[in-house]
Design a protein around this nucleic acid. Sequence first.
DNA 1: TGGCGATGTCAACACTTGTTGGCCTACACT
DNA 2: AGTGTAGGCCAACAAGTGTTGACATCGCCA
Lengths: 186, 186
Amino acid sequence: MTTAKPRRSDATKEAILVAARERFAEDGYERATIRAIAADAGIDPSMVMRYFGNKEKLFAAAAEFDLRLPDVAGMAREEVGRRLAGHVVDRWDGDETLMALLRAAVTNAAAVERMRKIFATQLGPVVAAIAPDRVGTRAGLIATQVLGIAFTRYVLRLPPVVAMERDELVEWIGPTLQRYLTGTPD
Amino acid sequence: MTTAKPRRSDATKEAILVAARERFAEDGYERATIRAIAADAGIDPSMVMRYFGNKEKLFAAAAEFDLRLPDVAGMAREEVGRRLAGHVVDRWDGDETLMALLRAAVTNAAAVERMRKIFATQLGPVVAAIAPDRVGTRAGLIATQVLGIAFTRYVLRLPPVVAMERDELVEWIGPTLQRYLTGTPD
DNA sequence: TGGCGATGTCAACACTTGTTGGCCTACACT
DNA sequence: AGTGTAGGCCAACAAGTGTTGACATCGCCA
């Protein structure tokens, strides 16, 4: 029994979080107003304050995120790049949380910190399992390419990047990640 | 004689633009207030309105930007990737305009449009001069890697990406751009 | 010197924001 | 049935925003 007593407010709380993720993802931190979020959730703005304290804490609760990177232990070493690329592209769709985090990170210090931590604690170990040396650098480089995709495809919506099919994108990006994982600069 | 009569207000106008670029680059579009920009420029907020009309137009004036990509005509084909990487990394420092554009693009539609146009009209031709096929796709992919660097290095400030020396970064990124320029996905 | 446009300041406007406290209502438990 | 408490709404606050118009002052030209 993980859930003890399902209170009536839990549903409202969840509705607020859903609306918050949507607004933060769409508008960024400052333009997403508590009033708009409350309206989307069909309740009064003061309820948001009661349940989450203030806007910062609401964001912190809404932007809880897990990359859910696959276990690379059993993979062929030369395949990891492509597998990682596929996973990341898939993960981006169907979850607005990362978009909220990405948009908010541009102006909100807490979002920056959280994003740093996500990449350090979740991507770092994966890299370490594959490459023994220069783990930080490799993880950082992978982050540049992965976040570059997210930024151009979902925020900037550059037409050619949007137009690419999932598989086509993976074919191009996979080798890049592979080189950042196992290659050398020269 | 391109300049006719240097009015006294030109200096003020320029001071406003400098302050505006700084604030937009640092804080993003919404958090950069006209009052703060005016204070930085040492004048009254109403002057900003008089000279630029409104905030949108001020941003448009402040975010005039040119990538100043080098002429690739004379370069060895297999060198273009690295040269491009070096140029882009250098260009990022010492000019706050692109950072302003990048930060603002997250919440401001006009900034998005301008960024799209910059990459289409300035990066597109360079790619076309090197690769005859899939010009749009190649330009888009280059944009993902280039903007990913900008985002992680200057906005997110991921420690390992910040720590990398210019040359080290170029060594890693160069081959990626080269493959996006002249390679094939498989 | 007188005047007039350019340059600049001041104070206020209408509006939106996050946030707060008081009040109402319905349900669960005794 | 009565009552306490959780869930919810309403109205308002203080602060900050872009923006505007009236007023002061500087500097040039007739």
